[in-house]
Simulated scan of single mutants.
Amino acid sequence: MVQNEAEIFGAVLKAARQEAGLTVEALAERIGVSERYIYRLENNGSTPGYALLYKLIRELAISPDLLFYPEKSTQDSEVDALIRKLATCDERAIRVAKATIQSLIDTAPRQEP
């Protein structure tokens, strides 16, 4: 069955919200809409206007390719998702992330050549 754009959007939105560990209520509060509106987006084929689409993409770190090119065979990589999440961080969070990554690199088991 071929999905229309609204069904694709709803499925991507719901998956991204769940992956972020957010309830419908929490997401609605973060972007300033009603819970009912989020349910309509996820389940009833509603689509948001540009301003709300922008907020959702940024809040949930959704790859626009998932929405605009769903036929692409490659899935969003973990690294791409991490980069989008980092883009939403403030300077302090970036410093913490960099230090954490460096610590992981420094303490990783060494592989023999």
Rank of each mutant, 00 (worst) to 15 (best):
A93Q: 15
V33T: 05
Y54L: 09
E35C: 01
L60F: 03
T74L: 15
G32C: 04
R92Y: 10
Y37D: 00
D80T: 08
K14V: 02
Q111V: 14
K55V: 02
V96C: 07
L56A: 04
V12D: 03
D76N: 07
L82Q: 04
Y37A: 07
V96S: 05
I62P: 08
I94R: 09
E35R: 10
L56V: 10
T47G: 00
K72Y: 08
A99S: 09
V79F: 14
T88C: 10
R58G: 01
R36H: 12
E71K: 12
C89M: 15
D76E: 14
R110G: 14
N44P: 00
R40H: 14
P113D: 11
L52A: 11
N44A: 03
I94W: 02
F9C: 07
T88W: 04
M1D: 07
A87M: 05
D76C: 02
E29T: 09
L13H: 08
S63H: 14
R17W: 00
Q18N: 06
S73P: 14
S34L: 09
S34P: 08
M1G: 12
T23Y: 04
A15N: 09
N44M: 03
F9E: 05
T47C: 03
I105C: 01
Y54M: 08
R36Q: 11
S46R: 14
Q111W: 10
S77V: 09
R110K: 15
S103M: 10
P113L: 09
I105K: 10
I57V: 15
R95Y: 06
T107N: 15
L67K: 09
G32L: 04
V33Q: 02
N4Y: 12
V2A: 11
A97D: 00
E19H: 09
R84K: 04
Y39A: 01
V12R: 05
A108C: 06
A28G: 11
L86K: 05
L82P: 00
R110F: 13
E78A: 10
R84G: 02
I62C: 04
N4M: 07
A93F: 00
K55S: 12
V12G: 02
R95C: 06
E7M: 08
E25S: 09
A6P: 03
P70D: 12
V96R: 07
L82R: 05
V33F: 02
R40D: 11
D65P: 02
A108S: 14
L60Q: 04
K14R: 15
I101S: 01
V12E: 01
V12C: 03
D65H: 09
L56K: 05
I31K: 06
A16N: 03
L86P: 01
K55P: 03
E112Y: 13
E29W: 01
Y69R: 10
A81Q: 11
F68H: 08
L86V: 10
K98P: 00
C89E: 15
S103A: 11
